[in-house]
Design a binder for these strands. Structure first.
Lengths: 141, 141
DNA sequence: TCTTTAATGAGAATTATTCTTATATAATAA
DNA sequence: TTATTATATAAGAATAATTCTCATTAAAGA
């Protein structure tokens, strides 16, 4: 997933965020790394070219990006946070053998779920969205 | 969810685990607390009556219980681990406003999903199970 | 009861993340 | 372009959840 510098710039600006080199680099790292990197992954990647970006800044920027819906946190059952640069609706394949998480896009499935939950209401709960966590094993693992 | 002492004992024994007071208390705490407690919740609950159970032991026992499928880890986008004493198939309602996670059982939905994915195969991935993470807001929040 | 193997307690160590504060910089106005 | 202001960042200390170490204890089976 390669995104132009200009796209990064406008994405930030559209959210009313100051366009800083740190934010550009962190966004770029998330897109380039793909596969739901950890903060540590992102820091390591960025430090190759920009060893002076503080780790505290990376965490702060990640929070800011999440708050502004430019990236998402990925739910896991580990105590290490992971991030997702893919904003469009998708589900996740979690590997039981390793830490790999792959995206899964399925519009037919989304339509079925939308239809199913249109009738079915949750008492006392207003639904915002549904993400499937599909656990299994990749052949390569 | 109240479970008898005898049930706790046989659950552990069936898995070939030594039946220790610590394990019994921790399992009981998870069932009694309900709603996907954190390790901290469990430790606080247990320490009321058993202040001498070490926190390291609680973490170790939780790992053991997860490995033996007596409890499950719950996926969240926080860096604090949460645990689930409900083993039967169910989904989760996550509150956007607070940390509440509620169980959602829906056999009709499970049947629809099972049917859908019987045809649909994932290339290079063998599915084990599917859990829906349904995000939204509880009225009370 | 005795033996063996595994579990626990205590607390140190680790690690991801957050916090603090002085400095630097982006955006905006002049 | 320069000055102003608000915000972001660097550096590193602080925190908090979790893991680790190892001596001691206790459960299960003989």
């Amino acid at each position: 997933m390669k995104v132009s510098i200009e796209k990064l710039r406008t994405d930030l600006a559209e959210k009313g965020l100051k366009v800083t080199p740190q934010r550009m680099n962190i966004l770029d790292a998330i897109y380039t790394l793909g596969n739901h990197p950890t903060a540590e992954n992102i820091i390591a990647y960025i430090h190759k070219d920009h060893p002076n970006i503080a780790t505290g800044t990376v965490y702060k920027v990640l929070d800011t990006l999440v708050e502004n819906n430019l990236i998402k946190k990925v739910k896991t059952d580990r105590d290490i946070m992971r991030y997702d640069g893919v904003i469009e609706k998708h589900h996740h394949l979690y590997c039981s053998e390793c830490d790999l998480i792959e995206d899964y896009v399925d519009e037919e499935l989304d339509a079925i779920l939308k239809n199913y939950f249109e009738n079915k209401k949750f008492p006392g709960f207003t639904m915002e969205d549904i993400v499937l966590q599909i656990r299994g094993t990749f052949d390569k693992c």
